[in-house]
Design a protein around this nucleic acid. Structure first.
Lengths: 228, 228
DNA sequence: AAGTCAATGGTACTGAGTACCGTCTATATG
DNA sequence: CATATAGACGGTACTCAGTACCATTGACTT
């Protein structure tokens, strides 16, 4: 009854103490003591002191991996930009807890680094997925996959941080918008199937830009990057 | 004479031991002992055990910051993609040392995380620089700055890793090429100054893509992102 | 009642990082 | 030449995270 699973009490005690005295000034002993358990029990529930704050990154990463494995989208980039929503949704579900964590990571360098390392794992997963999806072993395709993964993650982080700071009330919509922005960066290639039926003819317009500066963009716009 | 600055001996001893027995299996005492100095001296030269491997990230970061501060380029993105070359050049200058470090970071998770955290600091610096350069506080501009910084860093990492793995003989040329790719992702806006003199008129061409899919790209192509 | 399993608590250890202090050496200064 | 001063060094002792091991408890089964 008065024992809500110890694990919860440990997390509560940890966050409380971190707020009161700061992360580095709090010892594991103190956390365990306030939670009313032994030091050993702490390490049985959390692998490390940092782990109290980032409990389920592993689980979330596995979830994403799963989503990617079972996803059927028209391009790798779209599949990834879809999967990354899970991360945002997870944070939103955590609610206030996520915000407390954000306040901590903003102040403590060690925790910020840890958070960054976690994000890098998502990015790596995305990069590998996109690269595999493209099935193109060229160096240029590899770079492209890297840029796509980095962009998706950057866009996600951008929206997530805005939400964590309370700067937006509809993060999901913003995420959609941001992902559209990312997709626009990497225009899909023209369909290989007969280009005669559905298609678009651009007529004419004038821009102040130099032609040389414009050419690479135009080429990419029409030929597409190389996905599929 | 036989005392080449202790600091060097410590680094040599550390790398040798890390190669022989692995990073985690090597204690600071052992490093100090092989270098023929006391444990205290080790910590006097390097703040931590990891620091032996990443000695001058701080210095490099300051160098970049300086380069950005004194740079005069046409856009923030170009300034940043120029500054990031310094990082590549630094690694190339290190030569074999950089490769040994890469082999270590590939195997040891703690070191990889540390490396990633360092890179994130560059990225943050770039993001702030670009954002300030744009001087546009809109949310969309902020996202754009984030995407640009992430892309530059991703492209840099891509080329750097290729060089570290010995997959390229001319990393500088590849970096230039990769940066062109990044610049093409973010087309420069049409000049604000009279759009009548220099300019380009696109005439017409046909693509298999759907118009809706094409529109956002077209808009960005003409209106430019918002830089300046 | 005896046995089993999981969760717990305690003790002892390793190793990183910090603080402090005494020593040595080189160089300057009388 | 003798002495003073500063900087680099070595050693000791401490804190704290994380690991290993063992003994205890308590609930639930047979």
């Amino acid at each position: 009854m008065s024992k809500p699973a110890a694990r919860i009490r440990l997390a509560d005690a940890a966050f409380a103490l971190f707020d009161e005295r700061g992360y580095e000034q709090t010892t594991v002993d103190e956390i365990a003591e306030r939670a009313g358990v032994g030091r050993t029990t702490f390490f049985r529930h959390y692998r490390s002191k940092e782990d109290v704050i980032f409990p389920d990154h592993d689980r979330l990463l596995a979830l994403i991996k799963d989503r990617l494995a079972t996803s059927s989208h028209s391009t790798g980039l779209i599949a990834v930009s879809d999967a990354v929503r899970l991360v945002l949704l997870h944070y939103i579900e955590e609610g206030d807890l996520a915000r407390r964590r954000y306040r901590l990571t903003s102040k403590v360098a060690v925790l910020r680094d840890r958070e960054i390392a976690s994000v890098a794992r998502y990015q790596r997963l995305f990069r590998e997925f996109i690269a595999e999806w493209m099935g193109d072993p060229t160096e240029s395709a590899s770079l492209r996959a890297e840029l796509m993964a980095a962009s998706v993650v950057a866009a996600h982080n951008h929206v997530l941080r805005r939400w964590l700071r309370g700067e937006t009330s509809d993060p999901v919509a913003e995420m959609d918008e941001a992902m559209r922005e990312v997709l626009a960066l990497f225009p899909a290639p023209s369909g290989a199937g007969d280009p005669g039926d559905a298609g678009t003819t651009l007529v004419a317009f004038r821009t102040g830009q130099d032609l040389d500066a414009l050419l690479p963009s135009l080429r990419r716009l029409v030929e597409g990057g190389a996905e599929r």
